[in-house]
Deep mutational scan, measured.
Amino acid sequence: MSRVPSPPPPAEMSSGPVAESWCYTQIKVVKFSYMWTINNFSFCREEMGEVIKSSTFSSGANDKLKWCLRVNPKGLDEESKDYLSLYLLLVSCPKSEVRAKFKFSILNAKGEETKAMESQRAYRFVQGKDWGFKKFIRRDFLLDEANGLLPDDKLTLFCEVSVVQDSVNISGQNTMNMVKVPECRLADELGGLWENSRFTDCCLCVAGQEFQAHKAILAARSPVFSAMFEHEMEESKKNRVEINDVEPEVFKEMMCFIYTGKAPNLDKMADDLLAAADKYALERLKVMCEDALCSNLSVENAAEILILADLHSADQLKTQAVDFINYHASDVLETSGWKSMVVSHPHLVAEAYRSLASAQCPFLGPPRKRLKQS
C-alpha cells in the first residue's frame, strides 16, 4: 500500500486566492494483479454453464480479502454459449462490502496482453458476489490457432484489481511565511564533478583513453575500487588504474551511474553493462540491467540471455529466462542460440529441462510459493 502523499503547497495549487485553511483528501486504492494459466484448455468440458475456478489470491499475505477468477468455457447461458465468460469473485471478506475495479486480458504466445476488457467503474462486491463479462471473447476466435491465444493449448488470463480503501483527510492552515525547501541536487552536482573533471585525484585508463576521477567517490560506490585504493596496490601508489576489459562507451555509462545513480543509455548496452556491474560489484546497476534484459526477452535471444545471466550470477534474470524458455519451449528449441547452448553450456540445458519437467508435473513435489530491489 502506498504512503499517503503530503498535500501540495497551496501557493502551487492555483494562481488564484489562497485560503486560510485547507483539506486534502486521499482515497486510498490498493492495486494488484494475478495470472492464471489453464493447461490443455481444449479438453475443458463443453457443457453450457460449466465452471472452472482459479485458486484464491489477494494483494498480499496480510490481506484478508480473498478473490478468485471464474471461467465458463462455453458461456454462462444460452445467450453467451458462443463466448467464454469471465468473472472476478470475492471469496471471503471481513467487511460487509468492498468496491473494486478490474481489468481482464489474455496473454498471447509472446506474453503480450490482448483482448483487454475492464470495468468502467468500481463495482460493489459482497462475499460470494462476482462481476465480469458474460461475453468476454468469442470461442471461435479464441480457438483459432492463427490468433495465437492458446500457445501449446494453454489459456493464460491476466487480471488487474484495484480495491478502494478508506479515504484519509489531511488538513492544515496557511501561513504568510511559507518556506520552500529546494530539491536535493546531489546527483546532478556529483555528475558535474565527473563531467568537468574537477578536483580529480586519479586516472582511469580504458582502451587508450584516459578519464579523470575521484578516488573517494569510486571507493564509496564500488567495493572493488575501494579494495584497489585501500591496500598497497599499484593503483593506490600511482593513482592510476588500467581497465582492459570494458569498452570506453560502456565504461562511461558505468561511471555515470557511479556518480549519479542513473544510467540513461542502459537499454542500448544492458548486456555489456551487466558484465561491468558484476565485475565492479555495483549491485543496483546489475539489477537494473537484469530488468532491462528481462523486458527484451524473446524467442530468438532467450538462450543467449540465459548464458549471460549464468555467467554473471544474475539470479533474477536467470529465473526469468528459464521461465520464458519453459513457456515458449517449442519455439526456443528451434533457435540457433539454443542449439549452440546445447554444445557450449549443457548444464544450462539440463537446468531448463528440470524446470520444465517440474512445471508440467506438479505432483512430483509440493507447490512452490512464489514470493528486491534495493
Score class of each variant (00 low, 15 high):
M1V: 00
V4P: 04
S6R: 01
S6C: 05
P7K: 10
P8M: 07
P9V: 03
P10T: 12
A11C: 06
E12Q: 08
E12L: 06
M13P: 07
S14C: 08
G16W: 05
V18P: 13
A19P: 05
A19R: 11
A19G: 12
E20M: 01
S21T: 12
W22E: 01
T25E: 00
K28D: 05
K28Y: 14
V29T: 15
V30T: 03
V30G: 09
F32A: 07
F32P: 07
S33P: 02
M35Q: 07
T37P: 01
I38H: 08
F41G: 04
S42I: 03
F43N: 10
C44A: 13
C44R: 10
C44V: 12
G49D: 02
I52H: 04
I52A: 03
S54Q: 00
S55F: 07
F57V: 03
S58F: 05
S59A: 04
G60N: 09
G60A: 02
N62D: 06
L65S: 13
K66D: 06
W67K: 00
W67S: 00
R70I: 14
K74M: 14
G75W: 06
L76N: 15
E78S: 13
E79N: 14
E79A: 10
E79P: 13
E79H: 06
K81Q: 13
Y83P: 00
L84F: 04
L86P: 07
Y87I: 08
Y87H: 03
L88C: 07
L88I: 05
L89I: 12
L90I: 13
L90T: 14
L90Q: 05
V91F: 13
P94G: 10
S96C: 15
S96Q: 13
V98F: 14
R99P: 09
R99E: 12
A100I: 10
A100W: 00
K103C: 15
F104G: 00
F104N: 01
S105G: 13
L107Q: 11
L107V: 15
N108F: 14
A109F: 04
G111Q: 15
G111C: 01
E112W: 08
T114G: 11
K115E: 10
K115V: 12
M117I: 05
E118Q: 09
S119Y: 00
Q120N: 13
R121Q: 07
A122S: 07
F125N: 00
F125C: 00
V126K: 14
V126L: 13
W131C: 07
K135E: 07
K135R: 07
F136H: 12
F141V: 14
L142H: 12
D144V: 02
N147P: 10
N147F: 14
G148R: 07
L149G: 09
L149W: 10
L149I: 07
L150N: 02
L150S: 08
L150T: 10
L150F: 07
D152N: 09
D152E: 06
D153Q: 12
D153R: 07
L155R: 00
T156I: 10
T156Y: 04
L157W: 14
L157P: 01
E160N: 04
V161S: 09
V163N: 01
V164I: 07
Q165H: 08
Q165W: 09
D166K: 13
N169D: 02
S171E: 09
G172R: 02
G172D: 08
Q173T: 03
N174D: 02
T175D: 05
N177C: 02
K180G: 02
C184G: 01
C184F: 04
C184H: 01
L186V: 01
A187F: 09
W194E: 07
W194P: 07
R198S: 15
F199V: 15
F199C: 15
T200A: 12
D201H: 00
D201F: 00
D201C: 11
C202E: 13
C203H: 11
A207F: 12
E210A: 12
Q212F: 15
Q212I: 12
A213D: 00
H214N: 14
K215Q: 09
L218N: 00
R221T: 14
R221L: 15
S222A: 10
S222N: 14
S226P: 15
E230Q: 10
H231V: 14
H231G: 13
H231F: 15
E232K: 05
E232Q: 07
E234K: 12
E234V: 14
E234L: 12
E235N: 09
K238T: 02
K238W: 08
V241S: 06
V241T: 08
N244Y: 05
V246S: 04
E247K: 07
P248N: 08
P248R: 03
V250P: 06
K252I: 12
K252V: 06
E253N: 03
M254V: 05
M255Y: 08
C256Y: 04
F257I: 02
Y259G: 01
P264T: 02
N265G: 04
N265H: 04
D267W: 06
K268R: 02
K268P: 09
M269G: 06
M269T: 07
A270D: 06
D271P: 09
D271L: 06
D271R: 05
A275S: 04
D278F: 03
A281N: 05
A281P: 00
L285P: 01
K286V: 03
C289P: 00
C289M: 11
E290P: 00
E290D: 12
D291P: 12
A292L: 12
L293Y: 11
C294K: 15
L297I: 14
L297D: 00
S298I: 04
V299I: 12
A302S: 03
A303C: 06
E304P: 10
I305G: 10
A314C: 14
D315S: 08
V322M: 06
D323A: 07
F324I: 01
I325Y: 01
I325T: 11
Y327H: 02
H328Q: 01
S330M: 12
D331F: 01
V332T: 08
E334S: 10
G337K: 09
W338G: 04
W338S: 00
K339H: 08
K339T: 13
M341Q: 00
M341I: 10
S344T: 07
L348D: 00
E351D: 04
A352N: 13
R354E: 12
L356I: 02
Q360K: 07
Q360M: 13
Q360T: 12
C361A: 12
F363R: 15
F363A: 15
F363P: 15
L364A: 11
G365H: 13
G365R: 10
G365P: 13
P367G: 14
R370T: 04
K372G: 08
K372E: 09
Q373C: 15
Q373Y: 11
S374Y: 14
